[in-house]
């Protein structure tokens, strides 16, 4: 059963696609937000190119993670490699729900490539951890200091430089770091902003003067990060990427979708993904999502499903294939049908 709605009224999918296309054609500033699989991202980027749209993710955490890469880079380790190698794990800041299984694995297993050493897990400003993790984690406390302050304290205290306050429980961590075979700092743009992540990378760099250390950067949104990577190879830039001026441009401020939407710069908003969205006045919302009912205040809702698809997996640290069958159309196919109906537009390739 394939379902779509124009406003609150049931509609045939082709009619809904036609309606969505018409909205995009007359739009002066369309915005596409994505947290989706590879094929849908490819299709959305092609559509954005044709429609002169901005593509972005709604995940603020993905934006922080992207900024870490564009502004300084750093040292990273695959989560699966950390499971096998890290004898000292330090969780900093809160992690998204998708990371909990990984944290449990870290807490419940021993590294097999750490020369026989067993694993010690520390946490710093990590909020509520799953029971299995909370049971074993040694808590380092920064009291009422924010996570950015805590990260700064960590780096400063490890280098034995003066600080205004101290981290509680740092001594045990400091001793473990000195003896470590491999230190994994586990964090995410979900709980740390770009500057805090950069601070933690500075800490990782400091650690590597004597031991081996690296960062597991768990994406705040797995699909959002996947979409950002697909954009990076397709357009040459991570999200947000704008095709408004005819060439691809990246600017995390000018083209931030949430800003364009809130400030009324965008007039049509096409959302591909499952997060709840609600349009402000004066904007036409088109939603492609796995839903059973029309999205409130949306101009067009099309129920889509993930078929055989490729998505970014935090655990694998890369893209994985997910086999699935569904009767609803895939987001990629709906986007491609919209693209086919859009008139040609002169756009320079990236």
């Amino acid at each position: 059963m394939t379902v779509a709605w124009i406003g609150n009224r049931d509609a045939q999918v082709p009619l809904a696609i036609e309606h969505a296309t018409a909205l995009l054609v007359k739009s002066r500033c369309p915005v596409i937000t994505l947290d989706t699989d590879v094929d849908a991202t490819r299709a959305a980027l092609a559509l954005a190119r044709r429609a002169g749209a901005v593509c972005d993710t709604l995940s603020d955490g993905v934006r922080q993670e992207t900024a870490l890469f564009t502004s300084s880079g750093g040292m990273f380790i695959a989560p699966t490699e950390a499971i096998r190698r890290a004898d000292v794990v330090l969780i900093v800041g809160t992690l998204p729900p998708s990371a909990m299984e990984f944290l449990q694995k870290l807490a419940q297993t021993e590294p097999d490539l750490a020369g026989g050493k067993s694993r010690t897990v520390f946490s710093l400003a990590s909020g509520d951890l799953p029971d299995e993790v909370a049971k074993v984690a040694r808590v380092i406390s920064a009291r009422d200091t924010s996570v950015s302050g805590a990260a700064a304290l960590l780096r400063s205290m490890h280098a034995v430089r003066r600080t205004a306050v101290s981290l509680e429980g740092f001594e045990e961590l400091g001793a473990a770091l000195a003896e470590a075979r491999f230190v994994a700092i586990v964090c995410s743009g979900h709980g740390c902003d770009a500057l805090a992540l950069e601070m933690l990378q500075g800490f990782v760099s400091d650690l590597n003067t004597s031991v081996r250390a690296s960062m597991v950067l768990w994406p705040a949104s797995e699909r959002g990060w996947g979409s950002a990577l697909v954009s990076t190879w397709n357009a040459g830039f991570p999200l947000p990427v704008s095709f408004q001026s005819g060439v691809a441009e990246h600017d995390p401020r000018r083209f931030r979708a949430s800003r364009l939407i809130e400030e009324g710069e965008a007039d049509v908003w096409l959302h591909v993904g499952s997060e709840p969205v609600s349009p402000p006045d004066g904007i036409e919302l088109i939603v492609l999502a796995d839903v059973a009912n029309p999205i409130d205040r949306a101009a067009v809702t099309i129920a889509t499903a993930e078929h055989d698809s490729v998505v970014f997996s935090g655990m694998a640290g890369t893209f994985v294939a997910k086999a699935a069958e569904a009767s609803a159309p895939s987001a990629a196919s709906v986007l491609s049908q919209i693209l086919e109906q859009l008139p040609e537009r002169e756009v320079a390739p990236c």
């Binding site: 564009t70 880079g73 990076t232 991570p238 060439v247």
Partner: peptide, 13 residues
């Protein structure tokens, strides 16, 4: 792809 991510300022656009 990580190189692209690291160096947006070298993209001509």
């Amino acid at each position: 792809n990580t190189a692209r991510l690291l160096l947006p300022e070298y993209h001509k656009a």
